[in-house]
């Protein structure tokens, strides 16, 4: 177990380093940051001054190493726009985005996994088709449209929840549901596919030949095996929710990381953008590592691979 963990950790570190280099380079490849910051009518002297001011005149690898070493000390620089430390900007917002993403994932799993199991057990019946329709509809519905419809129906018409803002738990209900609906279809289909395969497996037949109750056959013997790919998918989805909730955060005016990234890109606030990029990548890597560990815990064969 320890060797497995250490090996995965080393791989994760390599990925993190690679991603930070790529992210850092991409921002600089997108154009001369100094001239963009200086504005359209700036003189060459102004641009040169800005470049020196932000250290953009130095060789690329020096800039990178400088940034990485201070990042490792916890200093991600300051926002060009508000002068606040970037680490504080991120920390202030991680609660909103993290809470949103985790709640949405939990809600999605609570709905999609039982629905997937039901669809597999009742394969090719009315239940299965209903679940299929639900998942296709969910997959085809854009996030922002669903968010607006939810606001119209539940906030404006029925007045059950507030329209936007982040003052109370009630503010989070619609965004969480919106995000959850967007990841439910894939989770449900994967659970169904896994269950279909496992239910026709020899060991499930063995479990039935042992006289076990249908409940035990389904939830002890089948689901534990069928859920393995769903765990990996859930980790990817959580990463997606952390970084990809920009639109939903914007619509509901939730002050999260996605919204911050969006604002910073518009303002060419490159210290913030590159830090968010690397921060989200690291979150992704940690989640993948976590899902590997959960899979290893659930499936004893994983460690051998």
């Amino acid at each position: 177990m320890l060797r497995f963990f250490v090996r995965r950790l080393i791989i994760a570190l390599c990925v993190a380093i690679t991603v930070s280099i790529i992210g850092f380079s991409l921002l600089r490849l997108s154009g001369d940051l100094a001239s963009v910051l200086a504005g359209e009518n700036a003189s060459p002297e102004d641009i040169a001054r800005i470049a020196i001011n932000y250290g953009l005149d130095r060789p690329f690898y020096i800039q990178y190493l400088d940034w990485v070493t201070s990042a490792l000390r916890g200093d991600l620089g300051r926002s060009l726009f508000t002068s606040e430390p970037v680490s504080e900007l991120i920390m202030d917002r991680i609660g909103v985005t993290g809470g949103l993403a985790i709640s949405a994932l939990i809600l999605a799993l609570l709905v999609a996994v039982p629905l997937g199991v039901l669809a597999a057990v009742k394969a090719n019946t009315w239940w299965d088709r209903a679940a299929l329709i639900f998942s296709v509809a969910g997959q085809a519905t854009p996030n922002f449209w669903l968010a607006l419809i939810f606001i119209l129906v539940f906030a404006v018409q029925l007045r059950w929840v507030p329209v936007s803002g982040s003052g109370s738990i009630a503010h989070f209900i619609l965004p969480v549901v919106t995000l959850a609906v967007s990841i439910m279809p894939s989770t449900m289909r994967l659970t169904r596919a896994g269950m279909m395969e496992v239910l026709s497996s020899d060991y499930v037949r063995t479990a039935r030949a042992k006289g076990l109750s249908p409940f035990k056959v389904l939830f002890k013997h089948a689901l534990r095996n069928a859920i393995l790919p769903v765990v990996s998918l859930a980790a990817v989805q959580l990463g997606f929710l952390l970084g990809g909730s920009v639109i939903v955060e914007s619509i509901f005016a939730l002050n999260g990381i996605g919204y911050l990234a969006f604002q910073s890109i518009v303002r060419v606030d490159f210290p913030v953008v590159q830090s968010i990029l690397v921060f989200l990548s690291c979150a992704y890597i940690v989640l993948t590592l976590l899902s590997d560990l959960i899979n290893a815990k659930l499936d004893p064969r994983v460690q051998l691979r």
Partner: peptide
């Protein structure tokens, strides 16, 4: 179901796939 595994046992062909791996 109460008879299976209790009064009637069944042994399957392929022991590699007939046991739950987890």
């Amino acid at each position: 179901a109460r008879l299976r595994g209790y009064r009637i046992g069944m042994i399957f062909q392929d022991p590699m796939t007939s046991l739950n791996p987890v």
